[in-house]
Simulated assay, not measured.
Amino acid sequence: MTENINQKLKDFFKRNVLINEIGEILRLEPDALIGVDKISSDHLVSEGIINIAELAKLSVASLPEIKEILPQMLQKWVKIAQLIGRNVKEQLKRHKKILLIGLDNGGKSSILAVLQDKFSIIKSLLPTRGVKREKLDFFGYPIISWDLGGQVQYREKLYFNRPELFFTEADIILYVIDTQDPERIPEAANYFREVLKVLIELKEKPELLIVLSKSDQDARKTLLWQQSSNSIENKFNNIANEFEDFKIDFCDTSIFQRETIMQMFSVALKKVSDTSEIIENILEEFASLVEAKA
């Protein structure tokens, strides 16, 4: 088991049970628990109680009758599963779910690579296929990133077909736009509008941050970049104004200036964090760094 799973939680499981991350716990079969043998677990599974999550859903007051399992044993296992479920949910609440959305080749995966100091892989990165989930650490702050590949086939046939699988329970959406590809700004804007429509339908209200990707120092000096940046801000502010529930902010980033990406994540986490003082310290640190390099 990983170290971030507390010891009290570990004590409920058999020693041979390996868990890579806390999100896996509720998907384990019942016999992962100490005291639940394989035969009893198979009987539970045959009744549709296929994992710890399903075991925790049972009501202690009205347990199902399973001939091969004593009621008092089943009651005990249910109580343990419910305790584990509460603990897992509390731990997961500390992780902030961040959705990275945008068109393909917009720079989403490169931003995540820089955040993890994986500069060497950037040149060989291919467009994300479907969804890539990663567990990250930002100054000790736990993040779960969902990088949604931006190819049109995923947008139309996957995300918008089953939006509840992708757009729910997000703390913040980072909508990434390639500022050096002005021809695709209208397409990016339309995609953004569709995302907001889905959020309204799902009654979700995450924070929104528009990330102006590839805002490299040399590019920023050109008229093309300035026009592209102004066009993006105007278009996306107008779209956000169509929906009363959403307010958006903008951040410039460049993979050649790591501090811009770190500062962008700091701004994003400040929007959804209760530990604003910690995030303020990070912002001050990077402000000092930027001034020192100026």
Rank of each mutant, 00 (worst) to 15 (best):
K118G: 03
S276K: 13
Q72W: 08
I121M: 00
E291M: 10
L212C: 10
S229N: 08
N234E: 03
K132E: 09
I261V: 14
I25T: 01
L18A: 09
W225A: 00
L202E: 01
L58K: 11
S120T: 05
I143V: 04
G102L: 08
S46M: 00
K214G: 02
P182A: 02
I84L: 13
A219P: 01
P71Y: 11
D252F: 07
A189Y: 05
I210Y: 04
L70H: 10
F192G: 04
S266F: 02
V131H: 08
S228A: 12
P163T: 03
G102H: 08
G48N: 02
T128K: 00
T253Q: 15
Q257H: 06
F160C: 06
V176I: 07
E207W: 03
Q263I: 04
T222Y: 09
V152Q: 09
L174I: 09
V131S: 15
T2A: 11
M264Q: 09
K57F: 15
I34S: 13
L283M: 13
L223F: 02
S40L: 11
I49C: 08
S254M: 06
A32W: 10
Q82M: 08
A61C: 00
K157L: 01
G106Q: 05
N20F: 01
A188M: 04
T260A: 12
N237Q: 11
E90R: 15
T222D: 08
I69H: 11
M1D: 14
L58E: 10
